[in-house]
Design a protein around this nucleic acid. Structure first.
Length: 722
DNA sequence: AATATCCGTATTTTT
DNA sequence: TACGGATATT
């Protein structure tokens, strides 16, 4: 490892003036006694920010100012002469990346900060691979499959291979995709993955082999990459002697945030990128590792010093976030987990108020209790934006959402169901993907299936007629259209035999696609979407129920696209960095500038609020009963609980309902009784415990029911008498 | 061959 | 609930 020497001219551009938030300071590029970007750091943070002699591992406990420290380090590197575009900052989400770069911008020069390479592993991989292009053996215009596409492709192949026929029970496409991803990300042989993680599909291992081979082959043919491919290709480029020098030599520093949630491939990538002399910095906390299901492994954190000899380790232990009451509770919960790097978090924020634990009657009761508490706190001056409700799984907030709507409490929800996963959004994205990459057979399937009278059989017949199945030579040389492009042209010319009912839709589709592909007055992306929407307007009524709502969703998509002009970029960004909260595109924040956050615990990683309300803290939900089978899974649930607790600054309220309905969907009254989470039971005395007064609510409901029935009867009578 | 209808069942977390 | 899969109908 070498000392960082500044051979480059320092980035001297003066700060662009006003940084509104927080302390705006002049960016002094030369030696000042206390450079602005290092001001206010504690000793450990300072050590981490300024370390300059080789690999660095920062073990940063919850709330210890990790973001600030990392931003200060980046700023320090820039001040020390590293060109910003030779710094690579890998974060877990897009949100984290932009927050970090923003922060760097406030302590250095905003223009310099914007030149830093930053983003998720997948997004950066996408960018690098497009730049590397044919050199990596990749078609220039590859499209990226998201999770749903991957499942669809497996589904298609499963049918083609004749699996799942004649009552043979074959694993669902989702399961197949899960096995695949697990196998690839953890770099474990199939048999081992199946036996260890998916024992119930062990009978089908041979079929899985066949399917996997077909899947991989088909991906190549369709010129698509799945999420795993992005990482695998990057790793290959970063580690192969032929390319690594050029690629890795591009960077002087590679910094990885949330290192405890990286998988083995990502660790290899880091190593590869640093082989040419770049200095790695990894920041993480093994107590907060919560992505094992994605093959993340805390071992990466533990083995960092082995992979990067001479690594220096800094531990951040002072917690600036939580009161001692909250922190003590969290520490004690974590203590039950046996393996974590030695560190003891402490806080000098004072004891604060005791966390509360409210035992509720049922889920409805819990919703009322939480809503009451939220409004109470708001009365006391805690804005909604400083409060969050956290839960283990997306649907845990369903009942609460109803209650919040009833009381007109505005909120946004992070995690849970995704806009992009709805059928109609997938439809229009498939249209865009067809335009972008005519080899994308999945997209063709989806789009053609929208036509009246066209089903799987017709599609199977027509695609070869168009010549889509043909292998296409990548001919990097000339302007020759590839086979799939010829297929598109043939389609636009009207080739293929179509059922009669499809005529109208088929004509429309051709003209719409032709317009979007037209060279002359090239439609910009927004105009393309408008035009494609016309096709959807015609076709959706055949396929969907509430057409107008779905069309309105398409308009939202168009709004989002507004700023983007590049279709390929739009598609890639959408799949690699999808909107992470529901309603992200409808813009509720404009109407109310104060709103509550609802979030899965996973999506709350890295965030903090003055008040945190943790729902459904019952055994079976937290830990999830899905995770009970092995010790590793259970331990991760404990860390998940720890993450939830440590999001709170001042107020922590935990609730769980005693009565759970056996069946989530039906309204029958069968139920079972719940207990407090096994992780919280031992620390129950840390809470101020309450029991909600559940009686009374039912009588009121009965009264209402009578009134409502009368009204309905009156209305009904009017229908035949008026 | 496509579509309508019915049934049973599955349910974490996300790039 | 809501979705996928299997069966019945057009």
């Amino acid at each position: 490892m070498f000392e960082l020497t500044s051979t480059q001219p320092p980035p001297v551009a003066p700060p662009e003036g006003n940084d509104s938030g927080g302390g705006s300071r002049p960016a002094t590029a030369t030696t000042a006694a206390a450079p602005g970007h290092l001001e206010g750091l504690n000793a450990a943070q300072l050590e981490a920010a300024t370390h300059s002699s080789g690999p660095l591992l920062v073990v940063a406990g919850a709330g210890t100012g990790k973001t600030r420290t990392l931003a200060a380090r980046v700023a320090h590197l820039i001040h020390g002469g590293s060109p910003p575009d030779r710094i690579l900052l890998l974060t877990f989400t897009r949100r984290a990346a932009s927050e970090m770069l923003n922060r760097v911008g406030t302590v250095t020069d905003r223009r310099a900060a914007s030149r830093i390479w930053g983003g998720t592993f997948h997004a950066v991989a996408n960018r690098l691979l497009r730049a590397a292009g044919p050199a990596a053996g990749l078609p220039g215009g590859f499209t990226v499959l998201d999770q749903g596409d991957t499942v669809d492709l497996f589904g298609m192949l499963r049918t083609e291979e004749g699996m799942g026929e004649q009552g043979r029970r074959f694993p669902r496409a989702e399961t197949v995709a899960a096995v695949w991803s697990r196998m690839v990300n953890s770099q474990t042989p199939l048999s081992e993955v199946v036996n260890g993680q998916f024992p119930w599909v062990a009978d089908h291992t041979e079929d899985l082999r066949t399917l996997f081979a077909a899947y991989n082959e088909r991906k190549r043919k369709l010129q698509v990459l799945d999420y795993d491919d992005l990482l695998l290709h990057w790793r290959a480029l970063a580690t192969s002697p032929a390319t690594s020098e050029q690629l890795a030599g591009r960077f002087e520093h590679v910094l990885v945030d949330e290192y405890q949630d990286t998988n083995p491939i990502q660790a290899d990538i880091l190593e590869g990128m640093c082989r040419a002399g770049a200095i790695p910095t990894a920041v993480g906390d093994d107590a907060q590792s919560i992505y094992r299901f994605r093959s993340a492994t805390v071992a990466n954190l533990w083995t960092f010093p082995d992979r990067f000899p001479g690594a220096h380790r800094v531990t951040l232990e002072q917690n600036y976030r939580s009161t001692s009451a909250v922190l003590n509770l969290a520490n004690e919960v974590l203590a039950a987990s046996d393996r974590h790097l030695d560190k003891q978090l402490w806080s000098d924020r004072g004891m604060g108020s005791r966390p509360t634990l409210t035992v509720c009657h049922d889920e409805g009761d819990q919703s009322r209790v939480v809503a009451d508490r939220i409004l109470d706190l708001r009365e006391q001056g805690v804005d909604l934006r400083d409060q969050a409700v956290l839960f283990r799984t997306g649907h845990h907030s369903d009942a609460l959402e109803l209650e919040l709507n009833r009381r007109s409490i505005p909120f946004v929800k992070y995690g849970g169901l995704k806009f992009l996963e709805t059928g109609h959004i997938k439809d229009i994205l498939a249209l865009l993907r067809m335009l972008e990459n005519p080899a994308d057979e999945l997209a063709w399937h989806r789009v053609l299936g929208l036509l009246d009278g066209v089903g799987p059989a017709t599609i199977r017949k027509v695609l070869p007629e168009l010549g889509l199945g043909e292998t296409n030579e990548p001919d990097g040389a000339g302007q020759e259209p590839t086979e799939p492009q010829r297929a598109m042209i043939r389609f636009l010319d009207g080739a293929g035999r179509w059922p009669r009912q499809a005529t109208e839709g088929h004509e429309l589709l051709r003209s719409v696609l032709a317009d979007c592909l037209a060279e002359d007055p090239a439609l910009n992306l927004g105009a393309q979407l408008e035009r494609l929407r016309e096709f959807c307007t015609a076709v959706f009524p055949l396929r969907y129920d509430n057409t107008s709502a779905r069309l309105a969703d398409l308009d939202r998509l168009t709004t989002v696209a507004g700023s983007v002009t590049d279709r390929s970029r739009f598609l890639a960004e959408l799949t690699l960095e999808p909107p992470e909260r529901t309603g992200d595109w409808s813009g509720p924040p404009h109407l109310d500038d104060d709103w509550l956050t609802l979030s899965t615990i996973h999506s709350a990683k890295g965030c903090e609020w003055h008040a945190v309300h943790l729902l459904h803290a019952a055994d079976g939900n937290l830990p999830s009963e899905m995770a009970l089978s092995d010790r590793e899974g259970l331990d991760e649930e404990l860390r998940l609980t720890y993450v939830a607790l440590t999001r709170a600054r001042d107020h922590l309220d935990v609730t769980f309902p005693l009565r759970y309905h056996v069946n989530r969907y039906s309204s029958d009254d069968r139920h079972h009784w719940a207990q407090l989470s096994r992780f919280l039971e031992p620390v129950r005395d840390h809470f101020e415990e309450r029991r909600s007064s559940e009686a009374g609510g039912n009588d009121l409901t009965l009264d209402l029911r009578v009134t409502v029935t009368d009204e309905i009867d009156t209305g009904l009578t009017a229908l035949w008498e008026g």
